[in-house]
Design a protein around this nucleic acid. Structure first.
Lengths: 210, 210, 210, 210
DNA sequence: GATGAATGAGTATTCATTCAT
DNA sequence: AATGAATGAATACTCATTCAT
């Protein structure tokens, strides 16, 4: 007797396969962020995932492909969350902007994300596919959102008129900078993210205010 | 009777050795920034420098040591230049700050520097020595300078009082962000550094002005 | 239900692995004795064993570790055999001693052993582990046995009383000397082991006789 | 004005060259015996000799040639000394034999010789030239001498008639054995050469006595 | 003659990928 | 499907030898 026809392939087999795939991605994320792409051995990934080395190749074409999938899978939820947030926001443009930046910092507080961001920067030159994906799925969406919030603020008179022309990188840069800084110079001079964040938001609003 | 002891060893031999050392560093900078540390083969460095493979080891202990020297030699001039500029500045605090940021962007316009910065970020986790050097020689000196300029501006009444407490990373982040951006997303959406810089400086002053 | 746990792991896989390990050791013994440790290339060992170069590292940690295992595996049987012989001997002390020395020469007649002995001597200074193993497993056991045989002969009145104090190296040296000699000077003046052995035993007994 | 014709080339230049050559050989002897042939770097030899690396090649064709010369020069004096001793000996055959063995042990007590002997054994297989030289210059001469002493003893009735047929290796082996032993197993169980030597000589005479 | 800078052939070891079981 | 044993291409580093100075 065969399994009932299932359009979404949610049979036992498929669920197991999906779980296995996730386990490998989790293991790989750990390994990649701790050791960097080149220094990570698939042996190590397999061991972390509790599977045989060859099994990885049943789910991914190559180490590079695995890397791409790790980035994709890990960052995808943030893209989705941001879009949902964008779709449902209410209130003044200033409040929305502040709330958005708080979300950015929130996302960056996950123990997985900062090392991943660092690794993406590190390997971006050699993985243009990753850079493109990152831009398309994360960055450009975030920019569209920010642009629309600012546009609202301009219309409502909260922000000065030429705020529409601002380089968004000027606004966002400090978020990434804080992450990078604490990754690289935590020993020398750690940043207290809490107050940094407040000052940053204050800063942004000051720059946009009418 | 022998030649007088030459304190600076400027004999032909020594000059050639220094030239050779420089050639290797130049070649390595190229290779490292194009391919990343791990993917760079010393064979390739040797070929670019027009020398034999073994020769590298007459000047550097190991690939890692070579990497460190590349970073050191390339960034050192900027540390020196910044200090000289710091020692000789005059004029209003706003003007000084603006001039300083223009210098930052100037430094980043060298074709060597942006890739080098990217590589440093990339490998910082695995080369704490590099991170420490970078912090000590470049970052902390820049911070000291900025702090003193802001302090002047506060005293003269140009800047608001609590400007002294600002996180300097908030001010500087966009410089690095622009470099990183054009490295990674030049294809997708290049930044025009010229106008970006002007907006950035305007931004900074707006945030500090009394 | 799974197969019963097999304590000795005699599955097909394990048998093959053991065979592979042996093949590598045999190949390495050949290579090492013909060319010496340093001059032996693992490429060559792999080729002799009919396997890939990397496979060696599935069984041995390093070239040095392989060398140690070669010595261990090759000499171990002789240690065991000597102990068994020691445990079961009967007859007069003179006969026993003679039989023991004949065994020594017998062992040395294997085509593998003399080159191996030479190599051990050759590399002993740089492989103290090998020297220690050799002393512990082979030499000291042989000495214990000889000592006990002589002691019997003294008790039975066959040997003179102070035979107990004799340096055993004086008795054994000619065995190794014959091996070394035929290794080094076979061209110039080969020793006929057969008569050498008889004369040696005669010599030993003459030295010990009451 | 040129130097006077000198048949033996004992001019200042030649003396210096000879001294330089000796210095290199001494340095090489040290290095080779401490580290073995393959592991010795000519850089190290040059440094020990206080000269430049290239200079070695003005005196020796290659590393192998240097090795051969080291052995030759170091062992040559012993061959000469033994011949002189042989030419001038008087007294009973037993006394002569004893005196000869004492000389052997004496020679072996030099700190240079035992490591050199070990090294010769170690590399003999790869340096047949060395083995041949060693046999010709040292071993065979020693054998001729021993043979003649024994022959005298037989004639004088001190030694038994068939002593003439004895394998000389049986007599000499313990000398080399003691050296080798203390090289390899000094840690585990050092031999006291003094008493070993006495016992050995006693042993030899006991084997030969009528 | 003497030097030591330059060379590049040579080698142990790693690890992504394959494939027989 | 899962495994892990086998592979061999790839690479940092060494060192005998040469040769311009």
């Amino acid at each position: 007797m065969t399994a009932p026809l299932d359009l979404h392939k949610t049979g036992k087999r498929e669920l197991q396969k999906e779980a296995r795939r996730s386990a490998i991605i989790d293991a790989a994320l750990e390994a990649f962020t701790q050791q960097g792409f080149t220094s990570t051995k698939l042996d190590d990934v397999a061991e972390r995932a509790g599977i045989g080395k060859g099994t990885i190749y049943l789910y991914f074409d190559s180490k590079e492909n695995l890397f791409e999938e790790v980035v994709r899978q890990t960052l995808f939820p943030f893209g989705v969350a941001a879009e949902q947030h964008a779709a449902s926001f209410t209130g003044s443009a200033s409040e929305l902007l502040a709330s958005h930046f708080r979300n950015f910092y929130e996302a960056m507080s996950s123990p997985k994300i900062p090392p991943l961001m660092a690794m993406i920067s590190a390997e971006a030159l050699r993985f243009p596919v990753i850079a493109a994906f990152f831009y398309r799925e994360i960055i450009s969406k975030a920019h569209v959102m920010l642009r629309s919030i600012i546009s609202r603020g301009v219309e409502s008179g909260e922000f000065r008129v030429d705020a529409n022309d601002i380089f968004l990188q000027l606004l966002v840069a400090p978020v990434l900078a804080s992450v990078t800084w604490n990754q690289q110079f935590h020993e020398q001079a750690p940043i207290d993210i809490e107050s940094y964040r407040q000052m940053h938001i204050d800063f942004v609003l000051r720059a946009l205010k009418a």
